[in-house]
Amino acid sequence: MRRADIKDEPATYERLVYKNTSVYHYMRISLVLENENTRLSAAQLKQLIVSGLRDLYGEVGSAFPFDLLKFDARALTGVLRVYNSGLVKLWSALTLLGSYQNERCSFRVTQVSPFLLTLSGNSRELELELD
């Protein structure tokens, strides 16, 4: 049976332009550790970033939410989602983070975008061989 409110009429043309309406930014990050054998879980990684934010901006300045959408524990890469207003703070905290449990480390930000979709279509990762 067909619902009365669903019609099969063709859609009329409509165009919408959204400027700066994405509320989030997405970042693809990777963690480089001095000792390659060190392992950490997703929760430990998020805790590391939270503590880095707190060290740089203090308790109040770092009180904004962000998500660790995905984490690959073997490659130490992840995807973060943060409100636009927190992007600069999060990025700067990642840049200045230098140690994990007394071991030197650094974060590389490989891609930043207001669209999560573009994080899976990075043409700079296209590797072609000649031989």
Binding site: A11, T12, R15, V17, Y18, P114
Partner: peptide
């Protein structure tokens, strides 16, 4: 700034 243009048609 970022832009998203959405269109609906047939």
């Amino acid at each position: 700034r970022s832009l998203l243009v959405c269109e609906k048609s047939n």
